[in-house]
Structures are given as structure tokens and as C-alpha cells.
């Protein structure tokens, strides 16, 4: 089932939480929903799950509006703070969720076993939820969201509170599941979107500010090539002047005069690799480091969301 968001708006009092956003997510796609705190991520997700009322615009899942409220069976939702009934044992809780989703009674035990295995809850399944650590609670939250094998998964910060090993496991799980489902996950951990998502959507102050694959966004933001070089055997000022004299080089910065480290920014659409290499060869300098400097997602994010 695909998700179509059409001119969605929502305001709390005078503050516009979501401001006329539109996007689509196709089956098999994992969309990473990024944005600073209070950007409108959670509000959008709550409207998709029909927890919050839609003020303006519409959300269509599989062609049907969520306003009718009968699409909830097809959606698996992990809310932001992962609320759980702490007084229930894990297995009872999963059974409760499965039954509420209207699952066939015969298939429930099998499904619970599968979710317990997939989410790594085998050791903890007989414990009360209140006895579990935050990471395991998060796994229970994921298990309840996926128990009824929904076609759409809405995960609000699914990896908070997990340790690095668990994060990798959960990401793998989401990636595996995402092949057949439509997944929207929100996060503020940038490496996470790069590792998990096919597409990134950055929103700020209720508006979409970027939309595309991680590679595409990086390319857009990068512009000029930036190299960090270390050149040995030469004198700092001479090297600086000769680098600056190269036709493809736009700007040179001295990063570390004692070690002869420079940051070389090329003019647009030009590469300086070859020119720098030739320069070093002709002057008998040793080019001991060339590091292409990639614009990090962090920088793109900061650029787009800071005014």
C-alpha cells in the first residue's frame, strides 16, 4: 500500500506544526523522516495513524483516506515514547495487541513466536514489561507494531535507547521488512537514515526542505570538490603559493603550517587531483595524504534547518 500525503496542514493555536506538506511513499520504500525537535515529524506520523485529526489536506493509504478510521488494521505504529502496559507480561501483551488488531485466533501463537524470535525477545518473553530495560521495551514496542504483519509501518524513533549491537539488529530487521512494506521512520540520528533508508525527507518548521536519496542530497549540497592534502619536503609558503597558482584551484587554506596540511577547494565542476599530483612530482615533494572531504549529512541537515 502506498502512502500519499496531500497538502497536509495542522496547527496548534497560532503555531503551525505541519504546513502544507505533500509527499508519497511507495511500497518497498523506507522513508527516513528527519528534522530538528518540534519540526512536525511526530505530528505528521500521528495524523497518518489517525490518532490526531487532520486539519487540512488528506492522507491516502492504498487510495483510501485515513479519515474514515478503518485503515488502522493495515498500519503498524510505534509511538514516540513507546508507551506499554507495564503490568503485563511480554507474551500476554503481544497476544492482547494481536487480538485487538482482529487477528485470527489460530494464527496468533505462531505470529507471537515469530515476532519474539525476530525482535530477540526470547530470554525476556515471560517477564513483566516493567522488569525490562529500555532497549528490550523498545523491542516489545516494535514487536507489537509488527505483530499483525501490517503493510504500512510508522516508526517514531525506533532505535532510541538501544545499544549499538541492538541498533544494528533492529536496522537490519527494518531493512528486511521494508522490502515488502511501506515504511516511514523518524529519527534524529543521521547515520541511521544513511544506513537504513532509501529516501530522506527533511522537514523544518512544518515544511519539507529536502527530499531525495542520501547520495542525491549530498551531491546537491556539496558543489565544489574539497581535498585535504599533506605535502612533505617543501616549505609551507612556497607550497601554498604554488597550490594557489594552479588553474583548477579556487581557494587554499593552511590547516597546519608545521605539518604542511592544506585544504584545497577546486573551482566548480573541476577536479584538482591530477594537478596537485603533477605539482608535487615536478617539485620533488612527497604527497603523503590526499583525503577527499565529503559533505556529511550532518552538514546538509544543519544547512537546511538553521536559519
Amino acid at each position: 500500500m502506498d502512502i500519499k500525503i496531500q497538502q497536509l496542514s495542522k496547527s496548534y493555536g497560532l503555531q503551525k506544526a505541519v504546513d502544507n506538506i505533500s509527499f508519497e511513499v511507495k511500497p518497498g520504500e523506507i522513508l527516513g523522516f528527519l528534522g530538528p525537535n518540534g519540526a512536525g515529524k511526530t505530528t505528521t506520523m500521528k495524523m497518518i495513524t489517525n490518532y490526531l485529526e487532520i486539519e487540512k489536506g488528506d492522507i491516502l493509504i492504498g487510495g483510501e483516506s485515513v479519515k474514515a478510521g478503518d485503515l488502522k488494521r493495515h498500519i503498524g505504529y510505534l509511538p514516540e515514547h513507546n508507551p506499554l502496559y507495564l503490568d503485563m507480561p511480554v507474551l500476554d501483551y503481544l497476544e492482547f495487541c494481536a487480538a485487538l488488531q482482529g487477528m485470527d485466533k489460530g494464527t496468533i501463537p505462531h505470529r507471537i513466536r515469530e515476532m519474539v524470535r525476530q525482535c530477540g525477545l526470547d530470554q525476556e518473553k515471560h517477564k513483566f514489561i516493567r522488569e525490562l530495560s529500555k532497549g528490550y521495551r523498545q523491542r516489545v514496542g516494535l514487536a507489537q507494531a509488527m505483530i499483525h504483519d501490517p503493510e504500512v509501518l510508522i516508526l517514531d524513533e525506533p532505535t532510541t535507547g538501544l545499544d549499538p549491537n541492538q541498533i544494528v539488529e533492529i536496522r537490519e530487521l527494518i531493512k528486511r521488512l521494508g522490502k515488502a512494506k511501506t515504511v516511514i521512520l523518524s529519527t534524529h540520528i543521521l547515520p541511521e537514515v544513511e544506513a537504513t533508508c532509501d529516501r530522506i525527507l527533511i522537514i523544518n518548521k512544518g515544511k519539507i526542505v529536502a527530499d531525495g536519496s542520501p547520495e542525491l542530497l549530498r551531491k546537491q549540497a556539496q558543489g565544489q570538490q574539497v581535498l585535504r592534502v599533506k605535502i612533505e619536503d617543501g616549505e609551507t609558503n612556497t607550497i601554498y603559493q604554488k597550490l594557489q597558482g594552479l588553474p583548477t584551484v579556487g581557494m587554499v587554506d593552511i590547516l597546519d603550517a608545521a605539518e604542511n596540511r592544506f585544504e584545497v577547494q577546486s573551482v566548480s565542476d573541476q577536479s584538482s587531483n591530477r594537478a596537485i599530483f603533477d605539482l608535487c612530482v615536478s617539485n620533488k615533494w612527497l604527497l603523503s595524504e590526499v583525503i577527499p572531504f565529503e559533505t556529511k549529512l550532518e552538514d546538509i541537515f544543519r544547512d537546511l534547518t538553521m536559519n
Binding site: K46, N50, Y51, D70, Y77, P79, H81, Y85
Partner: peptide, 11 residues
Amino acid sequence: TGTIELLLTKA
């Protein structure tokens, strides 16, 4: 505790 959200987003 926020569990109402969980309940209301079920079918």
C-alpha cells in the same frame, strides 16, 4: 502513560 495512543491506533 500514553498507552491510550497505542489503543486508539489499533483497529
